[in-house]
């Protein structure tokens, strides 16, 4: 069980927040993760967020919606959000559920996502 003393690790590298979501999250913990993430974006003035969901074996409609919401929130705070590492089975389930997560940017792994964010950043500067 996750609690206040054992939260999901969240690290910021070079202005880019990296979160790896674990498999055993319940709805309550996803909501608290969302709170912490937007706090972190504001505090660090981050320009990128990478959410790694490679350990998620099941993504239901709620989790899918929260992912989309997180991406949108980070974007309005000027942080580019990329969801990485979705498993084939999860992708197929989401498509069958009609959740194509159109507003969410995706990448195959964290490496590619960070590269994209960093090169995007250096182009802008």
């Amino acid at each position: 069980m996750l609690d206040a003393a054992n939260p999901i690790p969240m690290m910021t590298i070079n202005g880019c927040i990296i979160v790896a979501i674990r498999d055993d999250l319940d709805d309550q913990e996803i909501v608290s993760l969302q709170d912490r993430l937007v706090e972190e974006v504001a505090k660090r003035n981050a320009h990128g967020v990478v959410i790694d969901i490679s350990s998620l074996e099941i993504v239901d409609t709620f989790a899918g919606r929260m992912l989309a919401a997180m991406a949108q929130m980070a974007r309005v705070m000027n942080a580019r959000t990329i969801v990485v590492g979705m498993r084939p089975a999860v992708a197929m389930t989401l498509v069958e559920l009609g959740m194509t997560l159109d507003g969410v940017e995706t990448a195959l792994n964290a490496d590619r996502a960070i590269n994209a964010i960093v090169s995007d950043r250096s182009n802008k500067l």
Binding site: I82, M86, V95, T100, T106, L108
Partner: peptide, 10 residues
């Protein structure tokens, strides 16, 4: 559907 799933995979 296939295209959407491919996009979700990144």
């Amino acid at each position: 559907k296939t295209a959407s799933a491919v996009r979700l995979m990144g």
